[in-house]
Simulated scan of single mutants.
Amino acid sequence: MSTPVALVGIGKIAEDQHLPAIASSDDWHLAATVSRSGSVPDVEGFTGIEEMLATRPDIPVISLCLPPAPRFAYAQAALEAGRHVMLEKPPGATLAEVHTLAAMARERGLTLFASWHSRAACGVAPAREWLADKRITRVHIDWQEDVREWHPGQDWVFEPGGMGVFDPGINALSILTEILPHPVHLTAATLDFPANRATPIAANLRFTGNTTAHFNWLQEGPPTWDIDVETSEGTLHLGKGGSTLSIGGADHPLPRNTEYAGLYARMAECIALGISDVDLAPMVHVADAFTLGQRVEAAEFSF
C-alpha cells in the first residue's frame, strides 16, 4: 500500500521531476499540494503549509521543492507537526539551518532527507566503484548551461540565498563528493558577479588533490555537464550530468536514467529504517567558495 505525500512548491522542478517520480512509484501517492499559484488536477491543494498540516494529519511525509531561502520555515513546521521531510537540493539557504532541522528530526525520531538528485544519475555509482582503489592524478569539472533556459525569469536565483551559478554547480559538487575515494577541500576561487546581481553567474574553483571546476550560467545551446577524473589506470569521464560514463575512452553501459525515482525510493528506505540522510558536503564547498572567493565584477544580467 502506497504512502501519501504532500508536495510543497508546484513550480518547474515539481512539474518536470517530482510529479512524474511520485506518479510512477509504488511507494507513494500524491495526497496534497501546497502552493500560492500552482496546483495538480484532482489533488487537494492548499496555499499555506499550516493549513495543510492541520487539515491532513493522515499525510506523514512532506516533500519540499520550493526555493531554498523560505524552505527552513516550511521544514520546521512539518517536523514540529511530526512529519518526515524530504528536501530538494540545496537543502537550505545556510548550513546552520539544515543542522537545526537535522537535530529536530533526530529529537523527534523523524526522517530528514537532504536529497542530491545528481548523485542518483545512473553513471555515478559505477564511477564511484571504479575509482575506489585508483590513484587519482587530476579532476576537472566543466559545468555550463543557460540560466535563461533553466530558470526563466526566476530572479530569486540571483538574490541572497539563491546561490547563483552554484544552483547548478552544486549538482557537480554533489557528484564529486560522492565518487572520490578521498575528500578534497577548496583552496581558492574567483566568482563573477553581474554588477546588478547579488550572486555569481560564473565561478572557477580550485581544490586540493589537483581538482578544479568551472561553472558558467551564460552558455548558449546544449548544456555541458562533464566531470573528468584522470587516474594512473586511465581517464574516467562522466557526461550529461552523470547519465553517461566512459572509462579509458570506452563507453560503459548504463541503465535508463531515473534520478528522482531513485530519490523517492531512498526516502521510502530511510523511513523504513528509521534514519535520516543529511550529507552537507556539497554545500560546504559552496560556503567555502563564498568565504574564500575573489569577487570579480561582470556585465549586468537581465532575463
Rank of each mutant, 00 (worst) to 15 (best):
I170W: 10
M283G: 00
E178P: 04
K12L: 15
Y260G: 06
S37Q: 06
L131I: 08
A198W: 01
P90W: 07
P181L: 09
E44D: 13
L110G: 02
G274T: 00
D228Q: 14
Y260H: 02
V286E: 07
F301R: 13
P60E: 10
L64R: 11
E297Q: 12
S174N: 04
H285T: 06
A14Q: 02
N257P: 02
F72L: 03
H214W: 13
H182P: 01
A73F: 06
I141M: 03
A69K: 07
E300K: 13
A188V: 12
G209L: 15
T94N: 03
H252S: 11
I179F: 05
F72V: 05
H252T: 14
D192G: 07
A93T: 08
K89W: 07
E220S: 15
E159S: 10
A202D: 05
A272I: 09
V43P: 01
R148M: 03
K240D: 15
F46E: 07
K89L: 10
H252N: 11
G109L: 00
W28A: 00
G262F: 02
E88A: 12
I175V: 13
F72R: 11
N257T: 12
Q76M: 12
N210E: 15
F166V: 00
A23V: 03
I10H: 03
W150R: 14
G45C: 04
V229E: 08
G221C: 08
A69I: 12
F113C: 09
H214D: 13
G241W: 00
P20R: 11
E51V: 08
Q219P: 09
L101F: 01
R138T: 05
R106H: 15
Q219R: 15
S243N: 06
A73V: 08
M86S: 10
V286F: 11
H140K: 13
T208S: 14
